Simulated scan of single mutants.
Amino acid sequence: MELRGKQKRFLRSKAHHLQPIFQIGKNGINDAVLIQIAEALEKRELIKINLLQNTDEIADDVAQVIEKSVHCDVVQVIGRVLVLYKPSSKEKYQRISKEVKAI
């Protein structure tokens, strides 16, 4: 799903108050982290990920890897913080995605 500008702006405003729930450190990004990110996106739809100072990863590269493997949308990359969005497949978790569709 390709997000339009207004939808991304809405998601950025929702994500502003969120705390990063994942931190990627010196071990980098691996399959276990990707699985956990996919599960968190299924329940929350919108999450933040923080890249720690001791990582060798570059934020844009991590964003591309996550986007391809988890099939989500990268809403924003600011410094070492990524904002990810993926509509939930379960209706009971679809709060943000209903608002995004309405925009």
Rank of each mutant, 00 (worst) to 15 (best):
I78E: 07
H17T: 12
L3T: 04
F22C: 09
K48W: 02
R4Q: 11
N27V: 08
A38S: 14
L51S: 03
E42K: 06
R95D: 13
H16L: 13
V100M: 07
I24V: 15
K98R: 14
M1R: 12
R44K: 13
H71L: 14
S13G: 01
V70W: 05
K86Y: 06
V100N: 05
A102E: 12
A38L: 02
D61H: 05
Y85W: 04
L52N: 10
G28V: 10
K92C: 06
E39H: 09
V33N: 12
E57H: 06
R4Y: 05
L34A: 03
A40K: 10
R95V: 11
D60C: 06
V74F: 01
K8L: 15
I78N: 04
K68Y: 10
N27L: 15
I37N: 08
D60F: 12
S89L: 10
D61S: 10
A32D: 14
V33S: 14
G25M: 04
I37C: 08
N27T: 13
R9T: 13
A59D: 01
S89V: 05
V77L: 05
L18I: 05
A40H: 03
G5I: 11
N54S: 09
G5F: 11
D31P: 02
A32V: 09
I66W: 02
N50I: 00
V100Y: 08
E99C: 01
R80D: 11
I29W: 11
I24F: 12
